[in-house]
Design a protein around this nucleic acid. Sequence first.
RNA 1: UGACCCAUGGUGUAACGGUAGCACUACAGAUUUUGGUUCUGUCUGUUAAGGUUCGAAUCCUUAUGGGUCAACCA
Length: 550
Amino acid sequence: MAMSEAKSLNFIEEIIEADLQSGKHASIVTRFPPEPNGYLHIGHASSICLNFGLTQTFPGYTNLRFDDTNPSTEDTEYVESIKEDVRWLGFEWKNERYASDYFDQLYDFALQLIQKGFAYVDDSTPEEIAALKGTPTTPGTDSHYRHRTVQENLDLFTRMRNGEFPDGARTLRARIDMQHINMLMRDPILYRIKHAHHHRTGNKWCIYPMYDFAHGQSDAIEQVTHSICTMEFVPHRELYDWLINTLSLYPSRQYEFARRNINYTVTSKRKLLQLVQERKVSGWDDPRMPTISGLRRRGYTPKSIRAFCERIGIAKRDNLVDVGLLEFCVREDLNQIALRRMVVFDPVKLVLTDYTGVEWLQTENNPEDPSAGTREIPFSNTLYIERDDFMEQPPKKYFRLAPGQLVRLKSAYIVRCDEVIKDDQGVVQEIRCSHLPNSKSGADTSGVHVKGTLHWVSVAHALPVEVRLYDRLFSVEDPTDETADFMQYLNSQSLTTVPTAYAEPSLASATAQDRFQFIRKGYFVTDRDSTTQQLIFNRTVGLKDTWAKG
RNA sequence: UGACCCAUGGUGUAACGGUAGCACUACAGAUUUUGGUUCUGUCUGUUAAGGUUCGAAUCCUUAUGGGUCAACCA
């Protein structure tokens, strides 16, 4: 037996291992750099697990850095939710930083660039700048303002900072090469004028750096060794390196991986925001949302999300991960920890004609975990079972209740269906059964053969609860495939509410975020809207069902 | 009609010139007081064509396919 099969490394881990072995770095610094303009989603979880996970396996630490260079879209509300989500996922950052912490230094870098002749103030309008930019296949053209003197640029940039010009009147641009094959190198804009209130710096600034002039420099200031981002930033790397070299900063390196896409959902902040704003969901934490807060409210565990991120891995190719894997990961975790309870969603009455009184029967809280203990559940002659657990004319492979057939009531007795009572419409009103007195749970029933076991609830003791059943938000695998507006693919069945389900009485004490397995129904979590008067449960995920999918 | 990135079963990901493996899914069976769990087994893969090599998923060339780049967003 091998001592330990070395877990294969992803390409970023390989790079780090090589850097550590070659002595390039003694330890590493990574960062998770969200923009506080939206809530974190499952795609971010992948990045969080990567960046923080790296410094758990290798020596070093990870910073949380907010990329807050655009005050018009950013807000502290998002800062708080992001911090909560990262912690909830189980990670702790070394330093909490903001790009806005570096505004003074960034301004100074800009001055240096101007002095070296590598930046200039441009008075062109956005339209003019776009027109002169060229296209991916045609070179750009120099701006009229490209050759201003250092003095003039210094003067104008200072006045930009001092608020002498209105929004959009001028920009500071790097002077690189308008003919460059990489469009990002065609004199990229470094600073723009925005008379906007910033969530941290208030009204101190009216010019704000662009992403490219803030991100790499922030990495360098923090001495980030491995700056990991997604593939769409590949063309930015050339500019990232150019700025670091030109300003002689700490040589942080950027590495890119492919963002993870998951089928039947969207993970774009713009699209998620649209769902929220157009009230297609109840909010950022609607249990159908792929946001971390939505998954949390849905009942997902941090552990299951980490396991998912671990399984889907990190690579550079385009991908569309099956949401079924996420569901597998949460079932895997919940199976170990969720307490079992019995709840009937769509009841039909089952009456035992040969039983009287009430018995409190003992049953296990979790067959996977004996330490979860046992509880007592009340049994009587009038019960609810699921309507679809009975069929008058069952197909051959039906294991449930049918006329003349035997079935086990979970943790109670084996019963036989003797009679069916229907109304004028032929709808079953009541199923009359007799029980096998010697078949009480735990007794030796080796002589009796029962095919199925049903969950049930005693009518007199039943607790009415609300249950919310969720399904995928979109009806197609890739709602962003662009053959139509993604909103057209919304799944109208994504939420089904069962206003009155009947639960065993022990559920009365359930409080927010308690997780359960409702036997044979799925995994559920107490919703945060739940009260002792009105218990509400969200279905996290159903049980794997090899029968239903026929 | 340019540059850059990418290409391994249905999905995701390994194999670092030497037996194409793992997980999920699907299917079949065993066990089961949850049609759950657990266990066993099966199916399915290197985009194509050349080249280098004793040997190529891996290196080279070309083709094909997918993605990215023309925000004062990040």
